[in-house]
Structures are given as C-alpha cells and as structure tokens.
Design a protein around this nucleic acid. Structure first.
Lengths: 322, 322
DNA sequence: GGCCGAGGTGACAACGTTGTCTGTACGTCC
DNA sequence: GGACGTACAGACAACGTTGTCACCTCGGCC
C-alpha cells in the first residue's frame, strides 16, 4: 500500500480510502490510485486489516469428516450462507477424535474466527468457555455440547425419526426388529436407540441391539449372531447412513426388511429401494449458519435449540412383510 | 499478551519467548508466565503473528463442490497433508463458475495463503500471474490451467481411462457404444471423449455422443434419441460419476451395457454391479498437496506434471454381451 | 479583507506480535 | 582485581492496515 501511495503520489490514507470505497476522495485522485494498484498488482493484506479492525470475517466449522456425504452437504450449506455474508469458511475434520476437535477449535480461535459451528466429537467443551466469554458465538450442530455449556443447538429429531422407522416396520408385521447403531457415547446413536426402544415397548430385546462403530466385519458378525437366535430378527433398523450401507453389504442379499436412518444417493436405485428416515443435512447447516450470523449481528437473546423434522421415505426395503 | 506480561510481572518479549518455546528463559519464570496464560485464558493472536512473520501457515483449496464425493475425498486428503505440515486449509467451492473461482482465489490471496491448490473452473488464469510472480506457488489438480501458465499439475489419465472403458465394451462384443459426457469445455470431459473416440476408431458415430452438464431430463432425452436410431447403441460409456448415476436413473432398467468413469459408493451393490474406471481422488489430493509443500519448502525446479493411473473395475454392467 | 464551511488530503498512533539489540547479574579465568 | 563469557530479561522498532484528528485550499458571504 505504501508503494501504491508513492506511485500515485498520494498519502497512505488516501489509498486506504480508495481501497475501501470510502467517500471524500476526488474522482481524479481515486483514478490515479486505482491505476497504480492495477499497475503494481497490489492486493490488500487481510492480516493487517484484521489486526487493526478486530473482525476477521471468517467462521470456523468443525465436522467429523468432509468426505462423509452428510457432512459435506452440511459444509456446503454453511459455506453458501457464509459467502452470502461476505465471510470465508474454515473447515476442519475431527475424525471423531476429541483431541483433534479441540485442537481445531484452538487453531480457529487463534486465527480469531468471528464464530464457530461445531459438530462435537467429545463430551466436554469446557475448553470453549473462555472463547464464549470473550464473545465468540458458537452453534452446535447434529449433537449438543457437553454439560454446562449454554449455546445454540441445531439437532435432528433423532428419537422421533427412530420411532417412525421402527413403527413403520411394526406396521408391516415385524415383531423382531434388530438395531445396528454407532457407539452409544455418540449422542445421535443413543437418541435413536431411545426412539427405537420406545417404539418397540415390550417387544424390545437387548439381544437384537448392537452399538459400535461401523465396520463390515463387526456388522457381519453381529447380524450372523442375531440371525442364529431362536427367534431371529425379520427386520433391521440401521442407525446411520454408513451403517445402512455396511449392513447392506453384510446382509449380502438375505431378505430382511430394512429401514435406515439418513438418506443416501442411490438408495432408490438398489433393489429393493432402501426405505430411509431422511435428515436434511443442508437444512441443518443453513439453519446453524443463519443462527450464527444472527448472533454475529448482535442478537444476544437466550440460547436457541432447534430440532429439525425428519421424514420417512418408503422405497421397498422397509415394506417387506415379515 | 501484554496483560499476561504484567500479570506475570515480566516483559512482553519474555511471554513471546515462552509462547513460542524459545530457549533462554528461566524455568521458574516460564512457569509463572504459563500460569498467567492459563489464568487469563490467553491465546496468541495469529493475525498479528502472520503480519509480523510473513507466513500464514495456510493453504487455499478451490474445488468445484465440496458436496461432490470426488471433491470431498480430494479435500480430505489435502487437509490431512496440510495438518501434517502444521497448516490450516481454506476450502471454497467454485460451483463451476469462473467468476466465483477467481473471487475465491482473490480472497485466499488477500489472506495471504502460502500456497494454492486449484481445480479450475475457467480457462483463463492470467489473473494468477501476479501471485505466482510474488512467490505464491500453485498446483492445479484434475484439470490444467489456461494457456500461458506454467505451473505444477496433477491429472488423471483421462484419455487412457476412456480408451480402457471403451475397449472393454468392444471386447464384450459391442460395436454401437454411446458416450455421455459433460460439456466439452471441461478438460476432463474433452479428454475422455478423445480416448473414447480413439478406442472406437471407425466405429465412432457422432450421433452416439452427447456432451452437456448432467441432468436427468437431458440425459433421458439424449438416451431416448439414441435408442430410437436405426442402429441403436447396445452399450453406454458415461464420462463422470454424476453422469453415471444420472444415466442409471434415465435408463430405468433398460439393459444397456454400462461402464462409468469414476468409482462411487454402492456401485458394487447395484444389480448388476456397475463397472467403472476408477480414479483415485484421495491420491490426487495427496499428490498435489505434497507437491505444494515441496514447493513451499524451497523446491523451485521446473514445473512438474503428474498423471495418475486409473483402473478398470469389472462388476457386471460392463460385461453384458451385446 | 476576514471569516466560515466544505471538500480533499495527510500525519500519526494503534492493533498484537516477533526480531534485533542492549542491559544486567553472576560466575570463571588469567 | 579486572576482563570476559554466559544466562537471562527487557526496550524498541517494524509488519500493513485503519481510525482520529488536523491541515490546507478554495469559494462564498458579510
């Protein structure tokens, strides 16, 4: 900027004014400055600007894995909202590791993001307290924060969706319905198990439940074990998108009825089509981002807790009779 | 930092030394400083640091759309390499719009990213020249830059993969092979058409080619038109992952042989399984990022042009006889 | 002529770091 | 005892912006 100023024969401040479109600059002077800018290929140093102004026009997003379609759809939605507000998005994948989540948040805060959107991997977010107190708003998506943190949340209706799924299977005559979910320490997995159990009532059987991280081998082992029971399951409810796909592979064509939590591309092209309880990842991202920007523009009302509805999409696999 | 300094009863510089783990601080003093840091919840202001040091430890990635599995896998790989080098990743989706690509690059450069990885949406990158001259390295992935820009590239063997796919169909007895590709202005689409054409030789028929952005309606219309020809196609080669899925829907069960460029989740679970020419998006991202960090650590040898191999994965749809 | 206001323009400090240089205390060696 | 080295600590400038305030010039008015 200094170079531009001397090239145009004006003071630093005048260049600053031109660059920022501030009024009170003679059009002829402005033109001279702009020419100098073009000639020198100057571009404003955003770090210095941030240092001076205090706002970075940046928001941080911590998710589990960008390569997971659920989170990439969520990211894209957040990015779109951020761009619309003239903000850049910093994204990081925690890989479901609390340490990495914390490290990402720390890094984002050191870079002075204006706000944070977090899909938490851990159950303790006390480390966020200083940032929140310092006025950096945070919105938690998909899962709530650990205890003692009163921040905005945007969740899906996990229990309701699970009830919907299991009731659907019951309505099609099933009484023995297995549940494959992620580890119960993960909020969504636990809530979905709750919904499933509630829908089953006294039909619930502990032996038809498996809760652990998705892997083809374990899914296959669990299903084999359940199918070897005296009264084997005739239907299966899977607790997330990855598990649905894993279960499809593990089933290898065995004709259990199936409903999965989370929609996924191609669910309609399989045969039978896979019945799912669809969440709206883009909607969650959008809602969270809009909430965050509302906070950034000064709204300091009490924390809000949004729960987005889910919907059941019948495609065949969930309508198989028992 | 100033507050920490006075709280610990030391000078600014001593705090700086402790924060950066520089030697030459009395352990007792260091402890006092660290205590003060914890007590005040201090965290270094990265903008100021960047301003002072000149390096941001940040790299920018411009892709087409994070929500596309190909690009999200690529992103994730780049992010992993970046983290390993202590760098944060800025990601932006261009949505295949040249203006947005340029805007993203401009924004990244204003934030003084140390380097850029770009999947270009446009054919003209002269706007990058000042940045490159200023010493910001760039690596182009998946598609090369516009003319006149001599930068590193990491591409797939598009033509070779397309030849492989079409030859595979020919080997299974097909002579009338349709090609559905994206708009020919997109580098990969054009190269894949080249490979397809080369493999067909005199069997090539202009009427069996459609090149436009994927959409269910247009794909259906194009296929219907081709299938109504005197000598309709018995096989189909689709030029990217999204088109493969779109074509599957448009075909609605009509039993054409099919090979798709790009692998996708669940390709193996469809019936028949979908034969594909698989690229390695993670490998491309990794290779590009490693190349970029090599440049960042001082390698200024001549620009490198990597071409990653692809491989054909037979799953059934491509082995249907004519 | 002197005063005023408006429109332009510039000087300067400050944002929070870090690099360089200088200062001090203490121990060691001739 | 004096010169010197070492270990530690601090003062100060600089990075590239922007906010504040002051300045200059010029035209219009009494």
């Amino acid at each position: 900027m200094k170079d531009v100023a001397s090239a145009a024969g004006v003071a630093l401040k005048t260049v600053s004014r031109v660059v920022n479109g501030e009024p009170g600059v003679n059009p002829a002077t402005a033109k001279r400055v702009r020419d100098a800018i073009d000639r020198l290929g100057y571009s404003r140093n955003e770090s210095a600007r941030v240092l001076r102004r205090g706002r970075t026009s940046t928001v941080g997003l911590v998710i589990e894995d960008v390569a997971d379609p659920f989170y990439s759809a969520l990211s894209r939605a957040v990015e779109d909202v951020a761009i619309r507000h003239g903000c850049l998005l910093l994204t990081g994948s925690s890989g479901e590791e609390p340490a990495r989540e914390r490290e990402l948040v720390r890094t984002f805060c050191a870079r002075r993001v204006d706000g944070l959107i977090v899909v938490p991997a851990s159950g303790d977010h006390s480390y966020l307290r200083p940032e929140l107190d310092a006025g950096t708003p945070a919105v938690f998506v998909d899962r709530p924060p650990g205890p003692g943190l009163d921040v905005d949340t945007v969740l899906s209706d996990n229990a309701g969706g699970a009830r919907l799924a299991t009731r659907h299977l019951i309505a099609h005559g099933h009484r023995r319905i297995a549940f494959l979910g992620d580890h119960p320490s993960i909020f969504t997995a636990a809530r979905r198990l709750d919904g499933h159990r509630a829908a089953l009532g006294r039909l619930f059987d502990e032996r038809l439940v498996s809760m652990r991280p998705p892997s083809l081998d374990t899914a296959r082992a669990d299903l084999d074990r359940m199918l070897a029971l005296d009264r084997p399951p005739t239907a299966l409810f899977t607790g997330n998108g990855r598990l649905t796909v894993t279960a499809l592979r593990a089933l290898g064509g065995r004709p259990l009825a199936l409903v999965g939590f989370d929609d996924f591309e191609l669910a309609d092209l399989l045969s039978p089509g896979v019945t799912v309880v669809a969440q709206d990842p883009g909607g969650m991202g959008r809602r969270a981002a809009e909430l965050l920007f509302r906070r950034l523009s000064g709204d300091d009302g009490p924390s809000e807790h949004h729960e987005l509805p889910v919907r059941l999409i019948p495609r065949g696999s969930g309508e198989r009779p028992s």
